[in-house]
Amino acid sequence: MTNEQIQSRLIEKFGEALTNFEESYGMLSFHAPKELNLKVLQFLYDDETLQFRFLTDITAVHYPDQVGAELAVVYHLQNLTTRTRLRFKIFTSVASPQVFTATRLYASANWMERETYDFFGIDFVGHPNLIRILNVDEMDYFPLRKEFPLEDQTRVDKDDDMFGR
């Protein structure tokens, strides 16, 4: 199964909705509207020729400069019989980061989405238990967004102008 076949099959089904098809380092990737994320996942899962039935990874990326589409949720899928990988992204605004959850389709999506929520604050609608997973519950920001600092703010001994802070 070549990337062209996957692409034509997807366009056949979703038409103009899917955009930005490109192939980088041998992997097909495209963008989907955020309302369609579950439909795309379900189609890729159910379709007899595609059979993308292994969810490799879910993560997110923060692009503070893209106003209205600051957060991208990235899905990596794999067809284990033909060993084809696929990536697609959905974009959402940071003001209303609501995205449908994939937990009904993949049990593995549960913690991946919790992690994505923990880091980026993406609100997965319909997730059974969307709470912080790696950070403390009291944390009141989403640390992997670009505007938040990496360093521990309580530290005062590192103030070297050239190297430290």
Partner: peptide, 20 residues
């Protein structure tokens, strides 16, 4: 600039690096 997902077989499973 580029986007790459590369995986190796770690000792306990597929260890993937997704780099932008």
């Amino acid at each position: 600039p580029g986007e790459l997902y590369n995986a190796v077989e770690g000792a306990n499973g597929e260890l993937g690096f997704y780099v932008i």
